[in-house]
Computed example of a mutant assay.
Amino acid sequence: MDSFQVIILALIQGLTEFLPISSSAHLILPAQLLDWQDQGLSFDVAVNTGSLLAVVIYFRRELATMFFAWTGSIATRQHTDDSKLAWWIILATIPAVVFGFTAKGFIETHFRSIEVIAATTIIFGLLLWVADNMANRQLTEYQAGWKKALVIGFAQALALIPGTSRSGATITAALMLGLGREAAARFSFLMSVPVSLGAAILVTKDLMSSGEAIDYQALSLGILVSFVAAYACIHYFLKVISKMGMTPFVIYRLLLGGALCAVIWL
């Protein structure tokens, strides 16, 4: 890839990873529509690393507090709000891990197409609109409880299907279960840390065994651009979400889905 392609794909990853519009769909589309070559495993590792660094650094205080509270709960068997939240995040990660190991190959073989992306983009966009407009949004992430966390975890597992959107599915589920907009977004972002870390480790393992040539200059650029874009996305999304709600993202998903349907039919 040349530098222009690296920047565009890294921007797409950084901007869409935490917005409810599906990063996987947007990364697939350039290859499908513009006939770009596949970016390869090494680039996937790079841009995912940039996004992971962004969420970890942005929520560094919350993550540190949760980690020490969690380790303390193991030692003393006494729980605080932060230790409970940490356990719920761990629990919510399990469905994605199970589905990832059992269904990832099948999904990559059968679901990485414009037709699937168009359908999931529209369907899950409408579900997001329903959740945002009809849910009773009163709970914080500290009031979620393990049952709600597990349901949100199953929603996260659905994001293995391109076009679904990991953040979109988890935010939709959280809203339907009564979490407020900001609480739903924060819970979704915190959930992304163990999943993204695990995915990065697995893809790195695949990369090491693949013998793929590595362009370190392109990867460094991809990490930097993805990090900056993702950090800015998290910051401004949390700033404006309580005021504008999910409607702009729903409209975007419907327009994108409609455009993809037009491409298919033409």
Rank of each mutant, 00 (worst) to 15 (best):
A157W: 02
M244P: 07
S188R: 08
L91F: 05
S220T: 14
W88K: 04
H26T: 01
F59L: 08
F187S: 05
Q217A: 14
A199S: 11
V195R: 10
A200C: 15
G125R: 07
F124H: 14
V250W: 00
I114E: 10
A218V: 09
R137H: 09
G105K: 13
S23F: 07
A218M: 13
Q217H: 09
A25K: 03
T102D: 00
L85Q: 10
F111V: 02
G153P: 03
Y252K: 10
L127S: 07
Q217C: 06
L255N: 04
G14E: 00
R77C: 14
A119N: 12
L224H: 08
A119E: 13
A31H: 15
S3M: 13
K148F: 07
M1H: 15
L19P: 00
T109V: 15
G40A: 07
S23N: 00
E182G: 01
P20G: 09
I107D: 00
F111Q: 04
V203G: 11
F124P: 13
L52Y: 06
K148M: 06
L190P: 05
V250D: 01
K104P: 07
A183T: 10
R181F: 00
G222C: 12
A232G: 11
M66C: 10
Y252W: 14
W36A: 07
I234Y: 07
R60G: 11
L139T: 08
V97C: 06
Y231I: 15
E17A: 08
F154I: 15
S188E: 01
V6S: 02
S167C: 04
I7P: 04
K239P: 02
I57M: 14
L221Y: 00
T49M: 15
G178L: 00
L238H: 00
L207E: 09
Q78W: 05
S167T: 05
T170K: 02
F111T: 02
W36Q: 06
D2H: 12
A135M: 03
A200P: 07
S196M: 15
T71Q: 06
L177Y: 06
S209A: 13
A159W: 11
S226M: 06
A218H: 13
V45M: 01
P95V: 04
Q138T: 14
L33E: 03
V45H: 12
M246A: 11
P248E: 03
L15Q: 06
S83C: 09
Y58D: 03
Q138A: 10
M176S: 08
L202N: 03
Q156N: 14
V116D: 03
N133D: 07
I117E: 04
F18T: 00
L221V: 05
S113R: 09
L91P: 02
